[in-house]
Amino acid sequence: MKQATRYVNRPLSDDPRDTEAWALTEAARRLVDAARAPENSAALQAALQLNQRLWTIFQAAITEPDCTLPRDLRENIAALSLLVDRQTVARLADLDSTKLDTLIQINRSVAAGLAQKVGGPEARAPEPKRLDMPPPEPLRISI
């Protein structure tokens, strides 16, 4: 049986943005730890696989028909996730812990963006009136 993972910290909030920011930060932390111990290829492989699973979840989420993110944001996430995929596969192939900076920076940058609060209820602009329009077209990603 696989031993349970022990996390350094966990999100205290139930807000999905906080959970996603925490997950990206945790994945970045594990990549940093793996880079600091280049002799431990198992830790590097585990960190890369965790990062890959996380970004696969993001890819799946933006292609769901009920995804409420604007199309341009979904397309940007898709493009970024493809870059993450390429980098991850390259690092899994060569296990070069000196080439993790791109993945670490992407995770940290996206986590920082997610951690920013858009504003409290009183700071929000009023909801625009919705027109009777068909639901947004599902985003299709081809690799």
Score class of each variant (00 low, 15 high):
M1Y: 04
K2S: 04
Q3D: 08
A4H: 13
A4N: 13
A4Y: 14
T5A: 09
T5I: 15
R6G: 10
Y7I: 04
V8I: 07
V8K: 11
V8F: 08
R10T: 14
R10P: 11
P11Y: 05
P11M: 06
L12T: 14
D14G: 11
D15R: 08
D15Q: 12
P16N: 01
R17K: 09
T19C: 10
E20H: 09
L24G: 13
L31E: 12
A34E: 10
A35G: 15
R36G: 07
R36E: 08
R36C: 04
A37S: 15
P38D: 04
E39W: 09
E39Y: 06
N40W: 02
S41P: 00
A42I: 08
A42F: 09
A43N: 11
Q45I: 04
A47I: 06
L48V: 03
L48D: 09
L48T: 03
L48G: 02
Q49V: 07
Q49D: 07
L50W: 11
N51K: 10
N51T: 15
N51M: 09
R53Q: 12
T56Y: 00
T56A: 14
I57Y: 01
I57G: 10
F58R: 02
F58Q: 05
A60T: 03
A60W: 00
A60I: 00
A61K: 06
A61L: 02
I62E: 00
T63E: 12
E64P: 00
P65S: 03
P65I: 03
C67S: 10
C67Y: 00
T68W: 09
R71T: 10
R71D: 05
D72R: 04
D72K: 01
L73S: 11
L73G: 01
R74N: 04
E75M: 08
E75I: 07
N76H: 04
L80K: 12
L82Q: 13
L83D: 14
L83M: 09
V84Q: 05
R86C: 12
R86D: 15
Q87H: 15
Q87N: 15
T88W: 14
V89I: 08
A90I: 02
R91Y: 03
L92Y: 09
L95H: 06
T98V: 01
L100D: 07
D101T: 15
D101C: 02
I104S: 07
I104N: 01
Q105S: 12
Q105N: 13
Q105G: 08
N107L: 10
R108N: 13
S109M: 12
V110G: 02
A115K: 13
Q116G: 08
K117G: 04
G119R: 09
E122Q: 08
E122Y: 03
A123Q: 07
A123S: 14
A123G: 03
R124L: 02
R124I: 01
P126M: 15
E127P: 00
K129I: 11
K129R: 12
D132Y: 06
M133L: 15
P134K: 04
P136S: 01
E137S: 10
E137G: 02
P138A: 02
L139P: 06
R140D: 04
I141D: 03
I143W: 11
I143Y: 09
